[in-house]
């Protein structure tokens, strides 16, 4: 929030935060155009923290868990049972648990970075990072389906709806193909990216706007400014909810796509 305040203080005019606030410089000052920006560092930090916490929690393997192990087991079980087993089914969910668990906690922590002091930047507001995970999801569920049913069988499973007269196929098959094969990765990526992007803009807007009103505007700004700052706090809590929900939805949809790819002819 300090840099936001700096922005507003640097000119008399208030510049509403736009896409430019997501263009961060490299963390290495001598290489201002480098790719190692804060979100890139956050990716690495998130991976390290997620692995470390999960590993420490799982390491003891006590039958009667301590606090850390219990927390780790609850978190792990939430994804394993609540998403993996309930969606994919108890028969073959086990082999996808590592993917779902690492995906969920990786996205969750990267989203939470938007609200964690010193980070305060949602990693997935960088479109490329959301595209990467969505593309990976697309590859994963299609690969699983093709491996199980073969390419033709899988395409038939995904694109030919059962219980419909063949006369409708010319209309429905392209639609199904479009929605099940083409659109899914796009919606996955955009849902995550847009939520993080918009949430961050909203927060920056309330924060910088609040400071601008107090520092520059005067008059009614002394009333509206603090109100905006209070709203910034409220929005922060809302954002935390969204950060969790987006991670959950992303992994839930992954599990549903995998389940759909594994499904037998229905």
């Amino acid at each position: 929030m300090t840099y936001a305040a700096t922005i507003s203080a640097s000119g008399d005019e208030f510049h509403a935060p736009g896409p430019a606030i997501f263009e961060l410089p490299s963390v290495f000052p001598w290489n201002g155009d480098g790719v190692v920006t804060k979100p890139v560092l956050q990716l690495v930090v998130a991976a390290v923290v997620v692995f470390t916490l999960l590993y420490l929690a799982s390491r003891k393997r006590a039958l009667v868990p301590g606090k850390l192990q219990f927390a780790g087991e609850s978190a792990y079980g939430f994804v394993r049972n609540g998403i993996g087993r309930d969606i994919i089914g108890s028969h073959d969910f086990q082999r996808y648990v590592p993917y779902l668990v690492s995906l969920f906690f990786f996205i969750l922590l990267n989203n939470l970075f938007a609200s964690i002091p010193l980070f305060q930047f949602p990693t997935f507001s960088r479109a490329g990072m959301a595209y990467a995970l969505a593309g990976l999801s697309w590859l994963v569920y299609n690969y699983i389906g093709i491996r199980k049913h073969g390419l033709i069988g899988y395409l038939k499973l995904q694109c030919v709806p059962s219980g419909v007269s063949p006369a409708m196929y010319p209309l429905l098959v392209p639609l199904e193909f479009f929605s099940n094969i083409l659109v899914r990765p796009v919606t996955l990526a955009l849902r995550l990216f847009c939520n993080m992007f918009a949430g961050h803009i909203l927060l920056v807007l309330f924060a910088t706007g609040g400071f601008h009103l107090i520092l520059e505007y005067g008059g009614i700004g002394y009333v509206a400014g603090p109100l905006a700052l209070v709203l910034a706090v409220v929005v922060s809590f809302l954002e935390m909810l969204i950060q969790f929900l987006q991670a959950y939805v992303f992994v839930l949809l992954n599990a549903m796509y995998i389940q759909g790819a594994l499904a037998d002819e229905h």
Binding site: V40, V44, A47, F51, S58, R80, P98, S102, L103, G128
Partner: peptide
Amino acid sequence: EEIAISLVVFGILFFAVKKFVVPNFE
């Protein structure tokens, strides 16, 4: 570059979790 880095980082996390965390919990 960001796409590539994301995939690499997530890939490493995935394999680490698969190898060291999931067997322990299971």
